[in-house]
Design a protein around this nucleic acid. Structure first.
Length: 448
RNA sequence: GGAGAGGUGGCAGAGCGGUCGAAUGCGGCGGUCUUGAAAACCGCUGAUACGCAAGUAUCCGUGGGUUCGAAUCCCACCCUCUCCGCCA
């Protein structure tokens, strides 16, 4: 993943400021620029020697065809010239390889500059741009309780955290998950399993039937080239499970296989925008996260997610981010879950994003906001790395596309929010209206 | 897993170690003709890097090697297809 040399040459000031805003080292920009100057010198020099060698070889061919003695002095002179040029080519190429490796190393350490409307700063600079729904309290009166239809007879009741709700319902089996795979690999059982499958189906149905996405069911593993394409290698290599023996990586998100679908392709302008929705299980090692959110299913090694992936014309990507974020919000609204939308600041949004919104859903049982979606515009940053281009008009020069992606939505935390929002005083959980056709019922009852 | 065949431009498909970035056909674009379209005919039609430009260089699955010179020869790897085996 890199800002690319053309951008650096034309717009060094912006890239330099972008690095500062994200808390990265801006001097790398100048180092890269200097290395690039040397690279171009070497390129010109090498090309000159190659032209020399080509000319000598060509002359040899012509002379022989004209009847010259292949072992004669004329040919010998040309051979010597060609060989000499070859030696210089070898020397130049060696230095060139060194310089290019240096440039690559520098470029991957220069972040994508944030869009101008992104607040500069850290966590304190994040802006809540929207809120939706009622932020339910943990303790509330029995009468008029929201999200439950318990009899109104005074008193109050206390919402349980989702793991306790699930426990009573018998829909998670975290212990056995730990036994068969390890801690952080949850087992869903009974209606818990059905709920998972229902959410996945409903998300995909809304995206494919209403939002115009093409549904994709990709592999759950990718090769090294794909992991490199979206920047998991080298940035987030520690996050991935690796099947070393077969050189395969378990996908940490559907973004990886789906964005790589068009790697090294030149798309026809008329195909754009391309909008995909895909479900995959997501595998994350979460190294170093032990002890944090380990209760329940908030932070696990395997979870399920439907991801939206967009390939857009450059001029359309800013608007596409708003649209895509709206698609994720629509799902939360129809599930009846309170949420807020955060515009992430320069230092909070990550290295490769130009602009990012996080969607956080309210979990009243634990009284916390849970991140359930992250919607980002990468502009041409990923496209450059993966060489995804498009021809604006037939016969025109290919240009880099803009890529975006966003969760729509991540399951485990949505499930937690549903269990905490829709629980009733008797321990049962009401099923959100939109999911009832999928589960074929309107309640998850407490087992007798 | 075993045996065989093959990977060349958007597609199909040629290509003796030099004159091959690559014949030919199809497709696409432009033009002639036509009221319009089709047909026919003519021309154009890959990507990337460097360069103000002229232009130069690189790319025939990938990576090495031989050679003054490799799409063409050698080695390794990857992928596809066919048959056999195995299998949800």
């Amino acid at each position: 993943m890199s800002v690319g040399l053309p951008r650096l040459r034309e717009d060094a000031a912006t890239v330099r400021q972008g690095a500062i805003d994200k808390g990265e080292d801006p001097t790398l920009v100048d180092e890269a620029l200097a290395a690039d100057t040397r690279r171009r010198e070497l390129l010109a020099e090498g090309d000159r020697f190659k032209a020399e060698r080509n000319q000598a070889s060509k002359s040899i061919g012509e002379s022989i065809r004209a009847g010259a003695d292949a072992n004669g002095s004329e040919i010998a002179t040309l051979k010597a010239a060609s060989t000499a040029a070859g030696e210089r080519i070898t020397a130049v190429d060696a230095e060139l390889a060194t310089v290019e490796a240096r440039i690559d190393d520098l470029l991957v350490r220069i972040p994508n500059p944030a869009d101008p409307d992104v607040p500069v700063g850290g966590e304190e600079a994040n802006v809540t741009v929207r809120e939706w729904g009622e932020q339910l309290p943990r303790i509330q009166p029995l009468s008029g309780s929201v999200g439950a239809d318990a009899a109104a007879d005074g008193g109050s009741w206390e919402r349980l955290p989702h793991w306790e709700v699930a426990d009573r319902l018998g829909i998670f089996d975290l212990e056995r998950g730990a036994k068969i795979a390890g801690s952080g690999f949850p087992v869903y059982r009974g209606l818990g399993s059905t709920l998972q499958r229902s959410l996945i189906s409903w998300f995909l149905d809304v995206h494919s039937r209403e939002n115009g996405f093409t549904e994709i069911w990709p592999p759950a593993v990718v090769n090294a080239a794909s992991a490199r394409g979206t920047g998991q290698i080298p940035d987030k290599e520690d996050q991935m499970y690796v099947a070393t023996r077969d050189d395969l990586y378990l996908v940490p998100t559907a973004e990886v296989p789906v964005t790589n679908l068009h790697r090294d392709e030149i798309l026809d302008g008329s195909e754009l925008p391309i909008r995909y929705a895909a479900y995959t299980p997501c595998f994350r090692r979460e190294a170093g996260a032990a002890g944090k959110d380990t209760r329940g299913i908030l932070r696990v090694h395997q979870f399920d997610k439907v991801e939206m992936v967009l390939f857009e014309r450059p001029e359309a990507s800013v608007e596409a981010l708003e649209w895509m974020t709206g698609r994720a919000e629509d799902l939360l609204q129809r599930l009846g879950l309170a949420y807020r939308v955060l515009l992430m600041s320069t230092r909070e949004m990550g290295f490769v994003q130009a602009k990012k919104y996080d969607l956080e859903v309210w979990a009243p049982g634990v009284e916390r906001w849970l991140e359930v979606s992250s919607c980002s515009n990468f502009r041409d940053y990923q496209a450059r790395r993966m060489a995804v281009r498009f021809r604006p008009e037939p016969g025109a020069k290919p240009e880099l596309v803009h890529t975006l992606n966003g969760s729509g939505l991540a399951l485990a935390r949505v499930v937690a929010a549903i269990l905490e929002t829709y629980q009733r005083p008797d321990g049962s959980v009401e099923i959100p209206e939109v999911l009832r056709p999928y589960l074929g019922r309107d309640t998850i009852p407490v087992p007798a």
